[in-house]
Computed example of a mutant assay.
Amino acid sequence: MEKLVIATRKSKLAIWQSEYVKQELQKHYPSLEIELQEFSTKGDKILDVPLAKIGGKGLFTKELEVAMLEGNAHLAVHSLKDVPTQFEPGLQLAAVTKRFDPRDAFLSEKYTSLEELPNGAVVGTTSLRRRMELKLLRPDITLKDLRGNINTRIAKLKAGEYDAIILAATGVQKLQIEDEVKYFLPLSTDKMIPSMGQATLGIETTDNKEIVELVSVLNDENAHIESTIERSFVDTLQGGCQVPIGVKATIMDENSVRVQAVVGMPDGSEYIEEDITADIEEYKILGQNLAQTFIDQGAKELLEKAEKVAFK
């Protein structure tokens, strides 16, 4: 192969991620020409409606997948948290990169932490998972929808539309814009459990064996183990981004892995939470088994209720 085309969204973060993968690939294949081809996705264009009401996070991947299936691109780089657990025929998750900072982050111009926020403070997020976890931590705060790219969201915070906002720490860190906000505080996973795959890049390709083998050099074993557990958990629960699910697998040592998980209602009124440590050799079935524990406690019924609320 002489030239490789990467399909990417046009946002600054998406470009950063695609450039990162390009640079990593060129370390292994210095003579290979690699080109980025930019696309606007439906999720980028519709900014006034919560994702849950317009189809979920697959809205950020569809146009890129079409480009690959039509032969206009060879691979696409996604934030793994945006990648559905099931793929269109002819497509697959070929590699996951080394994980960056998986935590959510608190950003504010006025307050140093969630704990310092006054009663009724306005916090920006559209994520149903973050809404649920924020309400569990601070039931008194007021939640307000927040869409747009990272720079747009921060601009809204600085304009005084919110007392604080919650973003993925990794996005702010990659763009090196932590200093644009007075207070930037990553939150421990003991406080807020992230989305499946958060801070990992997923490389999606067609079933072309040459392309799959080419990108396999970027697959990180630890990220693969953690994301396999997380994605299996969500897949078994049959939960998309339109329902509140947090799950984070963390390799503790060569023998064990910790899995934190939570599902519930967007307002935090009902939830199920588990925190387990298991044998790392069981990682292929661990997510499914943990999900079954949740199902036995009524998780599917709870998520059905949450989904109805999300689509109101």
Rank of each mutant, 00 (worst) to 15 (best):
I229E: 08
K98H: 12
T236E: 14
D190S: 12
M132L: 15
L134D: 05
T170I: 03
L167H: 12
I272A: 03
V123E: 11
Q292A: 01
E274K: 15
S195V: 00
G120R: 00
L117S: 07
R258H: 11
T189S: 13
K22F: 04
K22H: 04
A67E: 10
D235M: 00
S232T: 10
A168S: 10
R129V: 09
A310P: 08
T250I: 13
I245D: 07
E19Y: 02
H74L: 02
D145E: 15
Q17E: 14
D82G: 01
I54N: 05
Q176Y: 03
Q17K: 03
L218Y: 10
G160D: 05
T236G: 00
P244E: 03
D145I: 03
D220M: 00
L93M: 09
A291V: 03
E307S: 09
Y283H: 14
R103F: 07
D207M: 04
L69F: 07
E274P: 00
M132H: 08
K57P: 00
K300E: 15
R129W: 04
M132F: 11
D104W: 15
L75F: 02
M265Y: 02
L175K: 04
N151H: 13
K98L: 11
I295F: 10
A73F: 07
G58N: 03
D267S: 06
R131C: 09
P89K: 15
M252Q: 14
A67Q: 07
R147L: 13
L69N: 07
K53T: 13
G240P: 04
E210C: 01
E63H: 12
I166N: 07
L75H: 02
L91S: 12
N151E: 15
G58Q: 04
I6G: 10
L157N: 06
I166P: 03
E33N: 05
R103N: 14
V49F: 05
K22N: 05
A291H: 01
L93E: 08
I280K: 12
F100P: 00
T200S: 14
Q176N: 14
L64S: 09
L143R: 10
N208R: 06
I150H: 08
N119C: 00
G55F: 09
P139T: 06
F87G: 03
S31M: 07
Q173G: 00
I229D: 08
L4C: 10
T61P: 00
E178N: 12
T152N: 12
V181D: 04
K158A: 08
I211F: 05
L114Q: 03
D163P: 03
Q198E: 15
D207Y: 02
L201M: 14
L302A: 06
K10V: 14
V309T: 11
G298M: 12
G90T: 01
E63Y: 09
L13T: 09
I141G: 10
A278C: 05
E210M: 10
